[in-house]
């Protein structure tokens, strides 16, 4: 799955490299117009492109599989009889999902940087504010962006974990989680539901742009952290409640 994610920036880079015409300013996905001047932007374009679908999808697969996958294999009963301990199992599974979220975001960024530097020039990056920063700091900012995006996905991972405890069919849990990710983004785009927006786990997904301003605005990082923390607490709590009492019959 990580390889599939890493393919996103690679595909974008190849498409830009092979096309004869540069995209004009403001055309295509954000940052695409800068790519031919500075390969590092591939990482950002890749991130923007992956956030609405690819990243949530892979995280849904990873998180939906946590408990339901074990139940589906029938290995859940052996893990519990080992005994793994239900709380411990849940904690380990969520920790693995967290690692996956971060790894997913990092692999998009890393693949973007690698393919970008292979196919294009690499130079100082222009921030959204119009200021220019050195390559070294650019890489640091990209790393922060990847961390931000990874963090953004933790709430979804917690939801996936909870859904995963509800069923023995991993595909069902994965699909339900992915659908929720899409629904949340759709709701976030309906102006009629403005009151709901700050509570949607996808609300700050594109907020990583705040890390590309000068000076860095940490507001959305903090707001996002708080929001994701809330989702983690609520849904891990639900997952615990469900899983601690669940009859394992698979």
């Amino acid at each position: 799955m990580l390889a599939a994610l890493a393919a996103v920036p690679v595909l974008i880079a190849l498409a830009v490299r092979l096309s004869s015409r540069d995209p004009g300013p403001g055309q295509g996905p954000p940052f695409l117009d800068r790519v031919s001047q500075n390969g590092l932007f591939i990482a950002l374009t890749g991130m923007v492109v992956s956030i609405p679908l690819f990243l949530p999808l892979t995280v849904s697969v990873a998180a939906g599989d946590t408990i339901a996958g074990e139940a589906g294999h029938g290995t859940l009963r052996y893990l519990l009889a080992a005994p793994a301990g239900r709380v411990r199992l849940l904690a380990v599974k969520y920790a693995a999902a967290v690692v996956f979220c971060l790894a997913a975001a990092l692999s998009v960024a890393t693949a973007g940087v690698l393919i970008g530097s292979a196919l294009f020039d690499v130079g100082p990056i222009t921030l959204l504010s119009g200021d220019t920063i050195s390559v070294g700091e650019s890489l640091l900012r990209l790393f922060l962006v990847a961390c931000y995006v990874g963090l953004s996905l933790l709430g979804l991972a917690a939801i996936g974990l909870f859904i995963s405890t509800l069923t023995e069919v991993p595909v069902g849990a994965m699909a339900a989680t992915a659908v929720l990710a899409v629904v949340s983004q759709i709701l976030d785009n309906l102006p009629q539901l403005e009151w709901l927006h700050p509570w949607l786990f996808s609300h700050h997904w594109l907020g990583f742009a705040d890390l590309l301003r000068q000076p860095i605005s940490w507001d959305s990082f903090a707001a996002n952290g708080l929001l994701q923390g809330g989702y983690i607490v609520v849904f891990c709590g639900l997952a615990y409640s469900r899983f601690a009492t669940k009859d394992v019959l698979s």
């Binding site: 294999h73 029938g74 290995t75 009963r77 052996y78 009889a81 080992a82 005994p83």
Partner: peptide, 16 residues
């Protein structure tokens, strides 16, 4: 209790 108990429950199940 469980560490002292070995079990085969309704057939084996493994990660294929």
């Amino acid at each position: 209790v469980l560490p002292r108990v070995g079990a085969l429950i309704e057939g084996p199940a493994f990660y294929p």
